[in-house]
């Protein structure tokens, strides 16, 4: 039986809100980056680096990184509790699901650290 211990915010409402909120951040970031590329057709490495050297861009990108992690966690948590259950896989489901969740939480954490290292060093 699936429990909710591994959900992000423990309440359905907070997970749901966070999922929407992070989606808006991701969309805003995507639109901005695409817009920036369109406005700078002859982009050089310096323009690109100049953009990311500003504090606000580093902050915006960090926020987006957090949003990716939260969004991916909630999304994949939903997927894993839909399909990796005793109903679909039998008794081994819990072990498979926990392994899956542990693995992708490590991956997400690694991406977060990696992103921060690039941004702030």
């Amino acid at each position: 039986m699936v429990t909710q211990v591994t959900s992000f915010g423990r309440s359905g409402l907070s997970d749901w809100l966070l999922q929407r909120f992070t989606a808006v951040i991701l969309l805003a970031y995507f639109v901005f980056i695409v817009g920036f590329m369109i406005c700078n057709p002859a982009m050089s490495f310096d323009t690109w680096k100049g953009l990311f050297d500003t504090t606000w861009m580093a902050a915006f990108t960090s926020l987006t990184l957090f949003a990716v992690v939260a969004h991916a966690w909630i999304g994949l948590w939903s997927v894993s509790t839909d399909y990796m259950t005793t109903r679909t896989m039998g008794d081994k489901a819990t072990v498979i699901r926990m392994t899956f969740q542990a693995t992708y939480s490590l991956i997400l954490f690694y991406y977060l650290v990696w992103g921060f290292k690039i941004l702030w060093s």
Partner: peptide, 10 residues
């Protein structure tokens, strides 16, 4: 009773 991740939010 409904505010858990499953009852409504699935």
């Amino acid at each position: 009773d409904l505010d858990d991740p499953f009852s409504v939010f699935r």
